[in-house]
Amino acid sequence: MNKEKIAIMVDSCTDVPKEYREKYNMYVIPLMIIYKDKEYYDGIDITPEDVYARFAKEIPSTSLPSPEITYNTFKKIQADGYKKVIVISISSGLSNTYSMVSSTAKELEELEICVIDTKNIGIGAGFSAIMAGELIEKGLDFKTVCQKVQENVEHTRIYFCVSTLEYLKKGGRIGLVTSILGTALDLKPIISCNEEGVYYTVAKVRGRVKSLKKAQELAVNMAKNYEKYNITIMHGNAKEEADKIAEELKTLLPGVNVCVEGQITPALIVHTGPGLIGIGVQRVNW
């Protein structure tokens, strides 16, 4: 039920899986992946495998979606008969995407547009888009959907582990994560986004196995604060580890509403490198 003709727009780094993009007819504006010889649209003309294969020769950079593509996507939404748009953006503390979309939205007087800064990254942001889709399907009005999604931002978090901080540092996305983690001690950070949407270190654990276990523990403890919740286990070329964690989480957390699993989008790979594991939780109160 969508009586108010509400559309959902996301940027590609919200990492909403295809099944949910199709279910809720989401419009996607892609970030750009920039190599020395060519630029690519995130998730459109470049795959995760492409990025991994080229790491040995070049670590590319990324940039926000172009204002032109964003404007044209809004016009497409209007042409498709929608009157209102909820835009879900990755954290303004990590990207200028939110600022650019907000600025572009002011040019579309024919549409009522609400842009939500999730203060999060990847499916941690994408959960807000899935929530918006569920609420619209339930028949809630535009203002209420926007309000409920915004209120739930602080109840959504993703904990992630990377094999190395090299990619975050090179991409300028290191945030508040300390780079003093010595190789001799094999200290691994569990990273999340703080209230400002900037990366910070939640904990430091010795070794890969213990770091993954700690991230899982943090997610389980958060989920237990809620009667119902969504969970996610996303990975960057680490499917075997992700599958094992997913199996354990489904046993530990019986109140799951939605469980999202899979490989992260190419633009996120650029900043995290191979070996990422992300474990996320979102409160379900609707």
Rank of each mutant, 00 (worst) to 15 (best):
T272K: 01
G236A: 13
V149Q: 07
H235C: 09
E261R: 07
G278R: 01
D186M: 14
G280R: 01
E196I: 13
P274C: 12
D141Y: 07
Y200C: 08
V209E: 08
P254F: 05
Q150A: 15
A203R: 05
E247S: 06
P274V: 13
L185A: 09
E217S: 07
A242Q: 00
Y229N: 00
T164G: 04
E166A: 13
R206W: 06
K244M: 10
G275K: 02
N230S: 15
E195F: 14
G275W: 02
A215D: 07
R173Y: 06
E154N: 09
A223S: 01
P266F: 03
V260S: 04
E151N: 12
E227I: 10
I264K: 01
F160W: 02
L218P: 03
P189A: 00
V258Q: 12
P254G: 03
G182R: 15
I233N: 01
L212M: 05
G171C: 14
I158A: 15
Y229P: 01
A203S: 11
P254I: 05
T144G: 09
R206D: 03
G255R: 02
K250Y: 09
Q147N: 10
G197F: 05
S192T: 15
L140M: 11
E217L: 03
E247M: 06
A242E: 00
K228L: 13
K244P: 06
K204W: 14
L165M: 04
G236V: 11
S163Y: 07
A242T: 00
G275F: 04
L268V: 11
L176Q: 12
M234R: 03
E151T: 08
L249C: 00
L181M: 15
V198A: 05
T272G: 00
E137R: 09
K143S: 13
S163K: 15
Y226F: 14
P266D: 01
T272W: 00
Y200N: 10
T201R: 01
L212H: 03
S163T: 14
K204A: 07
V270Y: 07
I264S: 00
S163E: 14
I231C: 06
C193H: 12
M222E: 11
N221S: 11
V220Q: 06
R173V: 09
H155L: 11
G171W: 10
Y159L: 12
I264G: 00
L276P: 01
